[in-house]
Design a protein around this nucleic acid. Structure first.
Lengths: 193, 193, 193, 193
DNA sequence: AATGAATGAGTTTTCATTCAT
DNA sequence: GATGAATGAAAACTCATTCAT
């Protein structure tokens, strides 16, 4: 009895195995064999489902983006006010899922790959634009277009920066202190001295 | 008598070639052959001077750190006031040298390598600690130790974040707008509403 | 379902190819490429099955030992008397299989490798101990423990020595004259003047 | 003041360094760099004096042969009787110089190289012929040409065999027991039961 | 659908040899 | 005579990809 419809199951299994492998072995030394072993499947199957290693990588990056986007959208939907929507973005950026070491490793890999792989670069641009545009929208009450732009830009930067600094910190990365700093920054943007 | 004392010259040549190659071909696909060609020297010489590809990479990361540290120290020495010293740090972080695409690529590589290579991780920690400790020191006039800490942390994060966002921006990365945003942030930390 | 269970077949093929290659090209200049070509398989497969060149060499040495041991054991089983068992050992040592030029080259290599490679040294010790202990056992009727020991030692030495001298003799190495000399030596040990 | 007549000094230094290096690193992994370092001289100098690595190896083998031959000749000159001359050969074969681990390693290497390198093979043949012809000459009083031949052959074999077995024994190789066994064998050849 | 087997192109690494000084 | 520098050819080893079953 041939199993049918395995495609989505297998693809997901490989993508998740890729994220774990990137963390465990580092992206540079990642082999399709590693991923297959991690997924408990055969090496040949990677090519059956993705066609090439690089296609698997792109699928993995896309997966990160989708998961992240879904988390943000979910939180935005539940938020009541513009201020709450800003908190939602911060929350979605520092939630437990996003601070998992495996996910962090994969995101950083994402950034580096974007430097040279156009396909990955395109994906990352989507993330960056979506984030800045969400922020700009929530800052729209600020007096000038210019102020809103700067507020959005600085908030986005601080999210990325706090995340980046947590990546390689001594302690387990924890979102709480990052969220506190972010909230203070947002407040200072909204009620300037 | 043979030509002597080439070691430092060659090492530097290879390190600089490595930075350019990382940018041109991407770190993942980097070969010692690429670096040698870029340096205009033979592949064998890379191993003669560094022993292995990975030792070359570590030397390259160390080079980045040294150059960056020297730039910051230089600017700090010339600064007149605590406020000026904060600007010095920002300046050193967004100066032309640091925003060269080649240097940016290499720094990002640095981060990714730090995830899995302990030797690289150690180097990166040095950078992070030095930056935060410099900032903490300049923020020492703030009312509480806590406020100073948060100010330092948020400033460091924003530096890294702005840099990171410029990495993959559409335009040539330019430091001016980043510096403006940073200065505003520093001011808001020093004179809270 | 894929073709399965090739591992032992391939391993044996490579080991036998290694023995032939050691003879043809000399151990010092032996490359995994040579062995692969000799086996009619790809170079990569050598590493797939053995992990490294040196593991292949060790497997080859082990193979020699096993084949030799099996030949001796077989002959010992068929022997009727202690005297016959001594002849069995001599026979097993100078049989056609052991005097094949390829096998001789490989054994000599074995000895040289034992000088510096602990793993190989361990294997060779097994051979030496087994031989001397077999001989000692068959000489046990001699008046003193001491005499038996010397008889065993001298017999073992003469086996190795005759073999060694045949290795590089002008003519095709032939076992007959060696066996005759050995038999005379054994007789002189058992019935001293 | 240019030093003149360095050639023999340097050549000897390299040859002795080669013997030590063969023992320390194994012949297979021997590099001219190793030898040069061991000799405390530069790598280029090896080629200046020998022209190639393989010429150095041959010179080293020749050196072994000369030293060994000189030891035997010296002892033969001092011997008073045919029986004493047989003892002289045994003595020369198991003297301290010949049982030095470095020398043993080099001799074994010599044998292996002889399998594939005609130049080395030629050298080794000289050793073998000289030894057998010396022995044959001292056994010339035996009743038949045939008996003398067998006695010479078995004695030579036992010398080589005892030496070979000492090479890789557990203990420091020591000549005494070998000499005792050899003397007994010679006696049994001369006064058969 | 799935796999173990196999490959070959490409990578790091080693090293004898050459050379300018 | 002597050396450190440099090279290039060849080696071990890796791995994405293909394939027969």
């Amino acid at each position: 009895m041939p199993k049918t419809g395995m495609a989505p199951v297998r693809r997901r299994a490989f993508v998740e195995a890729a994220i774990r492998s990137i963390h465990d072995r580092g992206f540079v030394d990642l082999t399709t064999g590693d991923v297959a072993r991690e997924a408990g499947l055969s090496q040949g199957l990677v090519h059956h489902y993705f066609g090439s290693k690089s296609a698997l990588i792109i699928a993995t990056m896309r997966h990160l983006l989708i998961e992240f986007g879904a988390g943000i959208r979910e939180r935005l939907r539940e938020a009541k006010s513009p201020r709450g929507r800003l908190s939602a973005i911060v929350d979605g950026s520092f939630c437990d899922e996003q601070l998992q070491p495996e996910v962090i490793s994969a995101w950083l890999t994402f950034y580096v790959q974007a430097l040279t792989e156009p396909a990955v670069r395109r994906l990352l641009r989507i993330y960056q634009r979506r984030l800045i545009s969400n922020l700009r929208h929530e800052y729209r009450r600020l007096p000038t277009r210019e102020t809103a732009e700067v507020a959005a830009e600085s908030t986005a930067a601080m999210i990325d920066g706090l995340w980046l600094r947590r990546v390689l910190g001594d302690a387990e990365p924890c979102g709480e202190s990052a969220i506190a700093i972010m909230e203070a920054h947002i407040d200072s943007q909204l009620e300037p001295s």
